[in-house]
Write a protein that binds this DNA or RNA. Structure first.
Lengths: 128, 128
DNA sequence: GTATCTGTTATATTATATGTATAACAGATA
DNA sequence: TATCTGTTATACATATAATATAACAGATAC
């Protein structure tokens, strides 16, 4: 599991951490039950503050991706990530709406958009 | 063109304005050359500050959605929005990646995801 | 010519978000 | 006892978001 940060990015560091861990789970590079580095170890590795890592971990826990045992440490959720429910689909739709609206303005056809999504899906499947 | 704000939203007001104007253009409720309210008029209508509207307008101008004439006012770009180029597709892919990664974690099939995108595309086409 | 409408620019203030820096606490373990 | 967990608290610096006023300069209507 490689974690790389772009300190120039507009995306906050804790967001980058979250996204890369989620991507790791999606690619099955991180498997259920697998241990993640402690907040201090990861912060030290990346040269960032403990609290920044902690914020990412807390949100990942809140969203059901990981479990945190007070003394055992942090692990990828052993029973797998909670499957999409109605609330998630609503959030997903709300997220995609403005993205698709802009694509339509820029003359991106539905077929082209779908193709891009399929290609991205493929990048996660192929590296399983 | 109805503009509604959710002051409780995490999305900044100027972002909501941008998204709704872009959605309006996508739905062809706003047509090329059509005038938009002045910064002061819109701010007054919505009960927000002039600078918040101006920030949205400036970014929409920067991204090619509108034109601003110093004394004539604000209009939807008369020649249509700039079509997607390589830079836009890269940005789009970068935007979709984490969204799709999370969907995969939550067991959303490619077919389900594509279906959702198609449905959203449809909401813009049907109201043309 | 004055008043009014544009967008624009400048300052200042408040609140919130982000990230860092230290320090300490409590449970588990070697 | 020392060291490792996550957790909590406080403080600080910076950036973003939004508001509040004020002023400027060009265009237009009376």
């Amino acid at each position: 599991m490689f974690l790389t940060l772009d300190l120039e990015s507009e995306d906050p560091i804790y967001t980058q951490l979250k996204q890369q861990i989620i991507a790791g789970i999606a690619k099955k590079e991180l498997t259920p039950g697998e241990a993640l580095p402690s907040v201090r170890a990861l912060a030290s590795d990346l040269g960032i503050n403990l609290h920044t890592v902690n914020k990412a971990y807390q949100q990942l826990k809140q969203e059901g991706f990981i479990l945190i045992h007070r003394q055992k440490g942090v692990v990828v959720h052993p029973e797998g990530v909670a499957k999409a429910d109605e609330a998630y689909f609503q959030l997903l739709e709300k997220t995609l709406h403005p993205i698709i609206a802009e694509s339509i303005c820029r003359d991106v056809s539905e077929e082209t958009f779908i193709k891009l999504c399929k290609d991205i899906y493929q990048t996660y499947k192929s590296e399983a």
